[in-house]
């Protein structure tokens, strides 16, 4: 039992030391596995911003995760085959430079989030859940039926994309790239939660009438938050594509949306670090159960079910002592 601050700190230290453990155990796969955990945690933090703090149950965040992956994959694909990307009459060169790729990813996933959010936020409740799902499904089926980038089979990248002076193919280097992004995203979201936007978002979750009567437009607050959330999850998708050097429609599927949502809940909503713990347990569980039984998803199902029925507050609250009052300041 400890304070939330201390636990958060421990989580970051532990993650920082992962490559060291990996070297000590002489198993580099651990580092790669934790890269995946960190990336999914980033996606989860993105979703948690609107799900936990804003009460918007998006069941379509795979759209952003997948778009990030495809932007990354497509830019690299065109870089490798020297064919420019054609959009109507415009032509763009591909690139394998991560700094550019990340910027493009952020721009495109923000635009997508603006589009999806603008229409989805006209609805609420179960309709919101379903319309976000529908938008993600649109992209999913589009990616399957559009053969240029592999269609159903997906697209392999021969090498990871690059950053000057760094060898991204080295698992440890790549892990730290993801780690740095995690830190940046945590700081960013922490700022947001304490900002005018963040307090408005938290207020919108509870009472939109009150928010409007103090002169705040809840639609704008929710839309801007949705865009930030989508951009963060898109970035995670970009890192995921580079981690696996492979993209396929799976990263746009509704199961992907479900997975991101589950790890947020598993770790504990309304907590900034919750998705990190959630991603950790989700992946470790997958590895662990997958190691002992072929039907590991069966047991995963049970664990999630028990979690939802009996331990709503998430894993974080098992580990820290302050009785959590969900929302106040962060």
């Amino acid at each position: 039992m400890m304070s939330e601050k201390k636990l958060n700190f421990l989580i970051l230290i532990f993650l920082f030391l992962v490559p060291l453990f990996s070297m000590l155990l002489n198993d580099i796969y651990i580092t790669t596995l934790f890269s995946k955990i960190v990336i999914l945690a980033i996606a989860g933090i993105g979703l948690n911003l609107i799900l936990g703090y804003g009460g918007m149950v998006s069941f379509g965040h795979a759209a952003f995760f997948g778009l990030g992956g495809y932007v990354t994959g497509i830019l690299a694909f065109h870089f490798n085959n020297y064919e420019p990307i054609q959009i109507l009459v415009f032509e763009f060169e591909g690139t394998n430079q991560l700094l550019f790729i990340w910027i493009f990813t952020l721009i495109f996933s923000s635009i997508l989030a603006l589009f999806i959010g603008y229409f989805s936020l006209r609805t609420t409740g179960v309709y919101f859940i379903m319309i976000t799902l529908a938008f993600a499904q649109m992209l999913y089926y589009f990616s399957i039926s559009w053969p240029t980038y592999g269609g159903e089979d997906g697209l392999s990248l021969s090498l990871r994309n690059q950053i000057p002076f760094l060898n991204t193919m080295d698992p440890i280097t790549f892990f730290y790239i993801c780690y740095v992004w995690l830190i940046i995203i945590i700081i960013l979201v922490k700022f947001i939660l304490n900002s005018p936007l963040g307090i408005s978002l938290k207020a919108c979750k509870e009472n939109e009438d009150r928010v409007r009567s103090v002169g705040i437009n809840p639609k704008k607050v929710k839309l801007i938050s949705f865009i930030i959330s989508g951009a963060i999850t898109g970035l995670a998708g970009s890192l995921y594509a580079d981690l696996n050097r492979f993209i396929s429609p799976t990263i746009l599927s509704w199961q992907m949306s479900g997975e991101i949502m589950i790890l947020v809940i598993l770790g504990g909503m309304f907590r900034l670090y919750g998705p990190i713990l959630g991603a950790f347990f989700y992946i470790i569980l997958e590895q662990f159960l997958g190691g002992i039984t072929e039907n590991w998803q069966f047991w995963l199902g049970f664990i999630i079910l028990l979690e939802v029925l009996y331990a709503k507050a998430g894993l974080m609250s098992f580990l820290i002592k302050d009785k959590y009052d969900e929302k106040t300041s962060s």
Binding site: G258, I265, G301, F302, I304, L305, V308
Partner: peptide
Amino acid sequence: DQVLATFALILI
């Protein structure tokens, strides 16, 4: 909660 619990049921 309903979405998550029934998602878990699918897995099971």
